[in-house]
Design a protein around this nucleic acid. Structure first.
Lengths: 155, 155
DNA sequence: GGCCTGGCTTAGCCTTACCAGAGTCAGCTA
DNA sequence: TAGCTGACTCTGGTAAGGCTAAGCCAGGCC
């Protein structure tokens, strides 16, 4: 069921990039803000309302995410409107999508009896999209077919 | 860069399975415990030490994860040893691995200048493993090729 | 019988995350 | 000029998550 991933007990998990990633998006509110960003939300009030978090928290989280380089804040202005700000995902932020998608997929499978409210589809062919583990040779990988190895530290 | 995922502004995000998933593993410590479980850790002390969290927190988190059905606690005993407990991933817990892997992959890419300390490989063929979004027709999907749709609520 | 070890729990405390409610400020519209 | 709206900030409070340090208990070992 689990697959014995461990290559040999005692290697220390410092420099672990999961921990580093969690330093950037540790909180529930950060994940929800990102979810909204992926869903297409760009404006302050919408982030707060749709993620159902208070405005102070939205402000703090947006500031942090901008600082970390996952979002960028830009001024924009529509014809007869005043200047406003909007938040958009950077490449770094957009690249987190698979993690969100994986959480969603897991939630769809295990926490919702209807398979989840939202479906991802490939825009070109319309087929449903899933998160997969796959090796460079193209095999789809189950968690029990994985080996862990320390990466040789080039440099 | 972001891809306008939104199908039409105003649908409410309640019943969102990302939020539900976050209710189960919202905290940093929960993620780290799961990381250790995937790395093969099974014993209480090792969880606390390797995830670098205090024992009270490890105890609380392990209890919760067992309660949520991601881990199961079982007694075991080696030949001339006393009975001990170990924690193992259930199918539900193991199925969260892609989410952890996605976080790791993102951290490797954006937060570590050496590509991360740990590498995933396919046990059978030795090739490196990556997390991918792929549609049922087999296309690899970038975040800008996605459509969101509300899932028709069968039932 | 006393010691040690693993697997916890308890106590006391600090910090962070979050909330609600109210206030601010700039700029456009009327 | 007054009002409205978007994008915040400020205040004051609760709760959750975290820590260290210490204690507890069962069972095997000497």
């Amino acid at each position: 069921m689990t697959g014995a991933l461990d290559p040999r007990g005692a290697w220390a998990a410092d420099r672990c990039t999961i921990a580093k990633a969690l330093d950037v998006v540790s909180t529930r509110s950060a994940f929800l803000i990102l979810r909204e960003a992926f869903y297409g939300t760009t404006r302050f009030d919408d982030f707060a309302a749709r993620a159902r978090i208070s405005e102070p928290v939205a402000a703090a989280r947006l500031r942090e995410l901008v600082q970390e380089g996952l979002l960028e804040r830009e001024d924009y202005r529509e014809p007869r409107q005043r200047t406003r700000q909007r938040y958009r995902l950077t490449a770094k932020g957009a690249d987190l999508f698979p993690a969100l998608a994986a959480l969603m997929q897991w939630g769809d499978r295990w926490l919702d009896n209807r398979g989840g409210p939202v479906e991802l589809r490939h825009r070109d062919c319309g087929e449903p999209v899933a998160v997969e583990l796959r090796c460079a040779a193209g095999h789809v990988i189950g968690t029990n077919e994985l080996d862990l190895a320390r990466r040789p530290r080039r440099r």
